[in-house]
Simulated scan of single mutants.
Amino acid sequence: MKQKLYDYSFEVKKQRRRTIVSVILFLLIIFAGISLVRTFAVFTVRSRSVSMQPDIPSDSCAIFTPIVNNLLRGDVVMLKSRAASPLSAFATAADAVARFFTAQQYSLFANDTAREQPEIRRIVALPGDTIYMKSYVVFVRPAGDSHFLTEFERSEKLYNVHIVSVPSDWDNAIGVSGSFEARTLGSGEYFVLGDNRTSALDSRLWGAVRLEDIKAKGLAVYFPFAKFRLL
């Protein structure tokens, strides 16, 4: 009787160990899978900023891909953080898992304000373009072209911008400028702007960005569902 009880107890312990190992392996597979997908395919971002309204509303979620080759005028991109040191690969993967299982509601680094505010902007001009801005609208002349057209006519994507009319006596030194003189982008330079033209901080302040400054390209806004749109 005692031998049978011992054998039963041993089998229970062995089954319990198998269950624990299976759960750990399952979690590790999910962890590795999300890490690989986030690194090489797609990941989600929650935007709490008003800089890309109206097409990307505040507190909306969007899908991005780290594949940023063949950028076009009108593409939405996420810029690499200039305010904080980047997370390690392990920390990035761990944070991705936490966000995945909480529907983007919680982050392991929620107290890090710089990382919680991704800089999402739209490409309005490519390397070699000559551009100027008038009344918050960019006019673009590609290299080898003799005519300026508006950013909307040159863009391969359809998008909307938010512009608030200011009084005629408004001091243009306040806030971001709505006009600037013609300038030509150098090799590898991209001019990016927020769609909310009267409040976003962008290339008007920083200057043009380079390809290595771009972390990801936007694919779609998927939440709120009523605001779904391809980017």
Rank of each mutant, 00 (worst) to 15 (best):
P167E: 04
M78L: 08
Q53C: 07
I131N: 09
L126S: 00
A84Y: 07
Q3M: 06
V138K: 06
A208Q: 06
F225C: 02
T198Q: 09
D59V: 02
W206F: 15
F40C: 06
L25W: 01
V166T: 04
S22N: 11
N172R: 07
V50F: 09
T44H: 01
G207W: 12
V176C: 00
V77L: 12
R229W: 00
K217D: 01
G186Q: 10
S49W: 09
I24M: 14
A91E: 15
F180E: 08
F223I: 01
L201V: 02
I174A: 11
S58M: 14
V37F: 11
A110S: 10
V209R: 12
S51N: 11
R82C: 00
G218M: 02
S51W: 07
K14N: 14
A226C: 01
N70S: 12
S49K: 09
K134C: 00
V124H: 07
P142K: 02
E116C: 08
D171R: 10
R18K: 01
T44I: 08
K14I: 04
V140M: 05
A89G: 02
L230R: 00
R16N: 11
F223Q: 00
E11M: 13
E116Y: 02
A200T: 02
Q104R: 05
F152C: 06
A89W: 10
P57W: 14
L211M: 11
V77Q: 10
V124S: 04
S60D: 15
G218W: 01
L230G: 04
K14H: 11
D171T: 05
F228S: 03
K227S: 13
K217W: 07
V76F: 13
K227T: 05
N70I: 02
K215F: 12
K217R: 15
V124F: 08
F40Q: 13
I30E: 11
F152A: 06
P167C: 07
E181N: 13
R73E: 04
V138C: 13
V138S: 13
V164W: 00
S9A: 13
L27T: 02
E153F: 11
V166Q: 11
L149Y: 10
D95G: 03
A96V: 10
T19F: 05
T102A: 08
K80N: 14
K215E: 15
K215M: 06
G33V: 02
S35Y: 15
D112E: 10
F100M: 04
G33M: 06
V221M: 09
F148R: 05
D129I: 02
A182D: 05
G188L: 04
P86T: 10
A220V: 14
L25C: 13
I20K: 09
S179I: 06
V138M: 15
D75R: 07
S155M: 06
V209D: 03
L126M: 11
T184N: 01
K217C: 10
L211T: 06
A220S: 10
H162E: 07
F109I: 04
S187M: 11
I123T: 03
Y6L: 13
T92I: 00
L87E: 09
D112F: 05
F191P: 01
G175Y: 09
S60W: 15
D129N: 11
V77A: 08
V50E: 12
R46S: 14
K217G: 06
F148M: 03
I174E: 14
F43C: 08
V50A: 12
L28Q: 03
A143H: 06
A32D: 05
V76W: 12
L158D: 15
D75C: 03
F64W: 04
